[in-house]
Design a protein around this nucleic acid. Structure first.
Lengths: 212, 212
DNA sequence: CAATCAATATACCCATGAGTATAGAAAATA
DNA sequence: TATTTTCTATACTCATGGGTATATTGATTG
């Protein structure tokens, strides 16, 4: 005898444990994004947590519930950006091709990250606003990225695909040229990050002096 | 009959009107310098006028006596830097030589200014911290400098001394590379601004791609 | 000498904003 | 159903710091 058919599933308002955890992670994410945008738009000190909360239609304790105090929020934003950069650096280190080609690929990604919410935050955050401890960790992580850039340049110089430049100053020059969009690029403007990245990288690598 | 000799002048503790005005100007200058250094070291919001006053061994009302409110202080600091840049731009515009040479000379000066107290302040000040009015004026003055850079690049492209680059992106790339020292250069470190400027300008203009 | 002005300090006011104590609602668990 | 946990808001505390009212001192000027 056939079992009676199970009635069609109704979308359940009751959430499983996994769903609840997912919800929580999603909210946390939204708070972080709202915060980083506020920090980028107004600067860390001028961006109040009340404003961040208001931009999400919640109240300040909600932010503390999900993320902790203001500096912890900033540190997490900055760490997001740094992780993206770190990943790009690792990818570049393991890629095939000449030093020049790998550097170029890395720089394109580097520039794009600097136009992303979290990447901008890395550039715009100065160590002075952080506690001593956080500042030290921040500096160390930035230093890793810088070392990766220098490594790529040095390899390019070694294999002849990059001119014999002073590696340190070359990394400063490149970093400056590609960090600057964090200040001026408008995500809602007509220029896509990829477009900007490509133009800037071409100029930074090629220079302005004519080749004949 | 000879007049009786005038006795030797004694250093007078009484100050003439001109001397008093000079004193005042000097004090005003000292306040401005103390302020810009504090702003550069801690960032505008984190730098309190109490701290600025304390660093001179005076009290807060003294700052108001000489300079006005906090934003006026910042605006004057920024204007100092902008005036230096403006002067450099005018000099470059009236100089002889190819576009490339004039651009190079200007950039050397530009980079040095960015490592000066007031120049750093121009770079490190974001419009968001200023009132609407000041921000508009600030942007306009920066735009003038940027236009000057673009003019020099365009002239270089026209006379063949600069490669046919996209003028706008070239100016962004150069500005970025040469603004960046405002963040990392340590005036008390071993690298002189002139040295840094020269190395960076050479790399920015020459690029990293080898020439054969 | 009187009146005034310049320069500076003390002591205050007040807004902002970080951070928290507390409470209540809803859901989960026992 | 009772209890605990999660989530969120209201309503506070408190420090910081911009800005000012007022007093004081000393020099300048009429």
């Amino acid at each position: 005898m056939p079992k009676p058919a199970v009635p069609a599933a109704v979308p359940s308002p009751f959430r499983s444990k996994a769903e609840r955890e997912h919800d929580r992670a999603e909210k946390r994410e939204a708070v972080l994004l709202a915060a980083v945008r506020m920090f980028n738009a107004r600067g860390y000190h001028a961006a109040s947590l009340d404003d961040v909360a208001a931009s999400l239609g919640v109240s300040k304790p909600t932010i503390y519930h999900y993320l902790g105090n203001k500096e912890q929020v900033l540190v997490e934003c900055v760490n997001r950006g740094l992780s993206m950069l770190r990943e790009a650096a690792d990818t570049a280190a393991g890629a095939p091709g000449s030093g020049h080609d790998r550097l170029r690929a890395f720089l394109l990604r580097y520039a794009c990250i600097n136009m992303d919410d979290f990447g901008r935050c890395v550039i715009r955050t100065n160590e002075e606003v952080l506690s001593m401890d956080s500042a030290i960790r921040f500096r160390a992580r930035k230093r890793e990225i810088d070392d990766a850039v220098r490594g790529l340049i040095a390899e390019g110089v070694a294999d002849g695909s990059i001119a014999p430049v002073d590696v340190r100053f070359a990394s400063f020059a490149l970093a400056g040229a590609l960090n600057w969009p964090a200040r001026w690029h408008d995500p809602d403007g007509p220029l896509s990050p990829e477009e900007v990245a490509e133009k800037l990288v071409d100029i930074a690598l090629g220079g302005l002096t004519p080749r004949r």
